[in-house]
């Protein structure tokens, strides 16, 4: 597997999680330029529309903002919040890097876990953080997600997971690779217990995460235009020396090839998930 580093950020929102220097309009309202339609959109308008441009472009969103968008008001209860990766291999530069990332993102790790209600239905929820090393999966991310599935089994709760990841965290070496197996085993146990798991793949879901829990859900949804794939597009181009097909590794492309159940725009996700939870509420008794 080629682990890829995420190519250049596609928009300024991706840098550090804060809106970096938006353009100021004459009347004082800050604006964002949309990389898709190239229009300047007032920030307030983007916020009112879950960070989706009127043209349909989905801006990247911080995990905590996403939790607010998806869950019933004040229903989210965070779990395992204190858990974070140490530097198990004493990997050069990792300690400083992670310190900087923690400071800039305001998060301890690349995933937030907990329980919440969506449409008044209770579920376990994990949301990966794009502003924390692009959702890179290290030992703590694996541990938190595994623990959440185990909690789901214990409490007989469904799990909903929003994925965003460049893959395994190479600074934790083999231990990060092992998180793929560890989380997969937990997903399997949860599944064998007859419980529902829904994954929502957001931009980007690649590498080790796409080869483990992102692709193991009963129902796999994705945001429009999200990059979903195992190997990085650039690596594939270098390996094969061929140009890539149009729309390669975009969620629409992956859906067409049969690996995603449905593409659900962000503004409709809460209702969609609530409906799915409702339909799976209480198992059929034959």
């Amino acid at each position: 597997m080629a682990l890829i580093k995420f190519l250049k950020p596609k928009n300024q929102l991706e840098e550090g999680g804060r809106t970096s220097a938006p353009v100021q309009r004459d009347d004082g309202e800050p604006e964002k330029n949309c990389p898709n339609c190239h229009k300047d959109i007032p920030i307030s308008r983007l916020w009112a529309n879950d960070l989706v441009c009127p043209c349909g472009y989905h801006f990247r969103v911080k995990a905590r903002q996403r939790i607010q968008m998806i869950t019933d008001k004040d229903s989210f209860y965070e779990m395992y919040s204190g858990l974070k990766s140490d530097n198990p291999l004493n990997f050069p530069g990792y300690k400083n890097k992670i310190k900087t990332v923690r400071k800039a993102s305001g998060e301890e790790e690349a995933v937030i876990c907990g329980v919440a209600t969506i449409g008044r239905k209770k579920c376990c929820l994990f949301v990966m953080e794009p502003y924390f090393m692009m959702g890179s999966m290290g030992s703590a991310v694996g541990e938190k997600i595994t623990a959440l599935f185990e909690y789901g089994i214990e409490q007989r709760l469904p799990v909903i997971g929003f994925t965003v990841s460049g893959g395994a965290r190479m600074q934790e070496g083999l231990l990060s690779l092992m998180q793929m197996a560890k989380t997969s085993a937990a997903v399997k146990r949860h599944s064998d217990a007859g419980l529902l798991y829904i994954a929502v793949l957001t931009d980007p879901t690649t590498g080790g995460v796409s080869a483990s829990f992102a692709m193991e859900a009963d129902i796999i949804l994705a945001e429009p235009g999200a990059t979903v794939g195992f190997a990085g597009a650039r690596v594939i181009e270098q390996t094969t020396r061929k140009s890539l097909p149009k729309g390669f590794q975009k969620s629409e492309f992956v859906l067409e090839h049969g690996f995603i159940d449905s593409i659900v725009p962000r503004t409709g996700q809460k209702r969609y998930l609530a409906e799915l939870l409702k339909l799976h509420d209480g198992r059929a008794i034959l």
Binding site: D86, G138, L175, A185
Partner: peptide, 11 residues
């Protein structure tokens, strides 16, 4: 399940 556990610290 045990792999990586010792690499995780708690606040």
């Amino acid at each position: 399940r045990s792999l990586g556990v010792s690499a995780v610290v708690k606040e």
